[in-house]
Simulated assay, not measured.
Amino acid sequence: MAKETMLTFLDEQLNKKLTDYDVAIDWDAKNHTIELVFLLFAENKEQWLIDDTEGIGSSEEVIEFEDGILLYNPGKSKIDPEDYLACLPFEGKKGMKKQELLGLVDYIKEILDDGQSALLDFLEDEESEVFELNFEKIRYEACVAKYAGQEQFIPYPSY
């Protein structure tokens, strides 16, 4: 059996806990990053003209919203935190603690559950000007704390 890595562990956990959402893992081996990308979809019944972050408008029947959380190696990765919902460091080849990864997946589910509801509300209220997901560090830490005692590291994948 192949050695468990951050990629295999996250893939298993995301497939197990986030069955209602479209989630992908994007590993950039050259930049030493793993991005967890998630999509939310909602029907734009009124076909409002909605601008994305780049100012491109759409009045499509179904709105697709994409965001991501980046796991990165502080010593090697080049990142722009503005491009992500959150950026979380890992410890090089050691990877991340199991409790951090488990808590992260649980927290992503909370973010997406809240986000799906907020996206639907956004499309129903013509006064709403902005829709965005929120990452609250204190809430993430509470999700991680639920897995106290699972402090073994899940290693970063080898090339």
Score class of each variant (00 low, 15 high):
residue 158 S to Q: 15
residue 116 Q to F: 03
residue 55 G to S: 05
residue 135 F to W: 14
residue 120 L to G: 03
residue 108 I to A: 04
residue 100 E to C: 12
residue 61 E to N: 13
residue 2 A to H: 08
residue 155 P to H: 02
residue 48 W to C: 06
residue 28 D to N: 15
residue 57 G to L: 02
residue 47 Q to R: 15
residue 44 N to T: 04
residue 149 G to T: 01
residue 127 E to W: 14
residue 57 G to F: 06
residue 35 E to C: 06
residue 72 Y to V: 08
residue 86 A to Q: 09
residue 92 G to W: 07
residue 159 Y to D: 05
residue 91 E to M: 10
residue 5 T to N: 14
residue 115 G to A: 03
residue 148 A to V: 02
residue 38 F to M: 11
residue 27 W to C: 07
residue 19 T to F: 04
residue 153 F to E: 13
residue 139 R to P: 02
residue 13 Q to Y: 14
residue 117 S to K: 01
residue 24 A to G: 05
residue 114 D to I: 01
residue 153 F to M: 08
residue 136 E to F: 09
residue 68 G to I: 04
residue 143 C to W: 00
residue 137 K to G: 05
residue 60 E to D: 15
residue 149 G to D: 05
residue 130 V to M: 09
residue 104 L to V: 04
residue 119 L to Y: 05
residue 108 I to S: 02
residue 151 E to W: 00
residue 130 V to A: 02
residue 10 L to R: 13
residue 46 E to K: 15
residue 142 A to W: 01
residue 130 V to T: 14
residue 87 C to K: 01
residue 13 Q to D: 04
residue 127 E to T: 11
residue 29 A to M: 10
residue 116 Q to C: 08
residue 153 F to Y: 14
residue 60 E to Q: 08
residue 131 F to V: 01
residue 29 A to E: 14
residue 75 G to K: 15
residue 77 S to N: 11
residue 148 A to T: 03
residue 34 I to M: 13
residue 132 E to N: 05
residue 44 N to I: 02
residue 24 A to W: 15
residue 124 E to H: 13
residue 106 D to C: 12
residue 24 A to N: 10
residue 21 Y to T: 12
residue 150 Q to P: 00
residue 62 V to A: 06
residue 136 E to P: 02
residue 54 E to C: 03
residue 2 A to N: 10
residue 72 Y to M: 03
residue 31 N to M: 08
residue 124 E to S: 14
residue 64 E to N: 05
residue 113 D to H: 09
residue 139 R to V: 12
residue 137 K to C: 01
residue 128 S to R: 15
residue 15 N to L: 03
residue 81 P to S: 10
residue 78 K to M: 12
residue 67 D to K: 14
residue 66 E to D: 00
residue 149 G to P: 04
residue 78 K to T: 09
residue 154 I to S: 13
residue 90 F to V: 07
residue 54 E to I: 00
residue 21 Y to P: 11
residue 86 A to N: 07
residue 156 Y to W: 15
residue 93 K to H: 11
